[in-house]
Design a protein around this nucleic acid. Structure first.
Length: 389
DNA sequence: AAGTCGGGGCT
DNA sequence: AGCCCAGACTT
């Protein structure tokens, strides 16, 4: 266990002075730094969770145009909301954002709560975001400990606690509690972010340019490279799917809305089946369905595809013999491999489709929210099939 | 404490 | 290919 703070009152004041002067000089101009509107700060902090500044900026501007107030957010249709988040990832963030907006309308008279305890009751706002909003919007001396802060602080004080462990966050919060500026905690927290992204980077930090290197214990000892201590993550587990790209006579494609909970909740995809469902009668090569050489084995697989389509959708497509080139999509904890088959149906009775399914013309795809794998499947179709006509 | 939940940039 | 990112929630 590391001892956190070794600074005297004078050193602490010295650090704040130097650090805040650097921030005032070098801070980035960002849309959510224009003022201290708690709503803007809140939305930006949610978007910035596990997401880079450059990625967030256009989403933030669009979001503020669409939903300029907490009230507008609370009243927004769910489809519009999800569409505004399309491509940003971690989609539960935007659902929680709206839940909290409704909660603020009902319990806080439409005004953002102004104490850390109340702020942290909102859905999607954990310890980090509570500290960020409380300090930046209301000037409260609340630590906002994220990955940047743990990296910077671990180097400043040579803290060896594993930052991958939930328990360690407390150590860093206590250290920040000791050193955070009482006069300007909001800028102090933001200065930590800016320093972490520009100078005190994970790899090859620019210590010679660091405004506070004279305060840094690991810099003094030449041990910066040892910090932060972080245990390794388990690597993504492979999952194999068969994707069905089904077109009807009107040029419409079969889409399915995913369940309301879990991975990619409420988003639209081409139908997916677990690969095992298609291959329990055959031996699949290590490389997947793409490497099946035998004509006979292919026929068996195709028969399975058709049975699956009949059972689930009451459709009888004519499939291409071989799948499109394999699609790979990596999530944090899963690695999807998708063998896409293209099939056509000549007659459609929409009443027979399951409730969460629709045939949709590509002209109208813009109205549907598509996650990454879906985008790749569509691209693969357009590249190999769509252009031939 | 461990697992779930996305996507993109960098090395 | 692995690592990282302005994390929070569920179990």
């Amino acid at each position: 266990m590391s001892n956190s703070n070794h600074w005297s009152k004078e050193e602490t004041a010295d650090f704040s002075y130097t650090f805040l002067a650097w921030y005032e000089r070098e801070k980035r101009t960002l849309p959510w730094r224009e003022n201290k509107d708690p709503y803007r700060i809140w939305v930006s902090e949610i978007m910035l969770q596990q997401t880079r500044v450059d990625t967030v900026i256009p989403y933030f501007l669009n979001f503020m145009t669409l939903f300029p107030t907490i009230k507008a957010l609370a009243e927004a249709p769910e489809d519009t909301l999800l569409k505004a988040w399309e491509g940003l990832g971690y989609y539960s963030r935007v659902r929680n954002l709206q839940k909290s907006a409704i909660q603020i309308m009902e319990d806080f008279d439409g005004k953002m709560p102004q104490t850390a305890a109340e702020i942290s009751t909102l859905k999607g706002i954990g310890p980090y975001t509570t500290g960020a909003i409380a300090s930046m919007a209301y000037g409260l001396p609340t630590p906002a400990v994220d990955g940047n802060v743990m990296r910077v602080v671990s180097r400043l004080f040579e803290i060896t606690d594993d930052i991958a462990k939930p328990k360690s966050r407390k150590i860093f919060e206590e250290t920040m509690q000791d050193i955070i500026s009482r006069d300007n905690p909001g800028d102090f927290n933001q200065a930590m972010m800016d320093l972490g992204s520009s100078t005190c980077t994970p790899k090859n930090p620019s210590c010679n340019l660091c405004p506070v290197n004279e305060f840094c214990q690991s810099y003094e000892k030449g041990t910066v490279g040892n910090y932060p201590v972080k245990s390794k993550k388990v690597k993504a587990k492979p999952v194999y799917y068969v994707g069905m790209i089904i077109k009807n006579e009107k040029g419409e494609f079969l889409l399915e809305k995913r369940p309301t909970e879990g991975l990619l909740a409420n988003m639209w995809t081409f139908p997916l089946f677990p690969e095992e469902m298609m291959t329990h009668e055959v031996e699949v090569p290590a490389g997947g369905l793409h490497e099946i050489a035998s004509e006979q084995t292919q026929q068996i697989v195709l028969k399975q595809l058709q049975e699956a389509m009949t059972q689930k959708y009451q459709l009888h497509p004519t499939f291409m013999k071989r799948p499109l080139p394999e699609i790979k999509h990596i999530f944090t904890h899963l690695k999807w491999f998708i063998a896409c088959y293209y099939g056509q149906v000549d007659q459609v009775k929409l009443t027979d489709l399951p409730e969460n399914c629709e045939f949709v013309h590509p002209e109208n795809f813009e109205k549907y929210t598509f996650p990454g794998p879906q985008q790749k499947m569509l691209a693969q179709y357009q590249k190999n099939i769509g252009q031939k006509k």
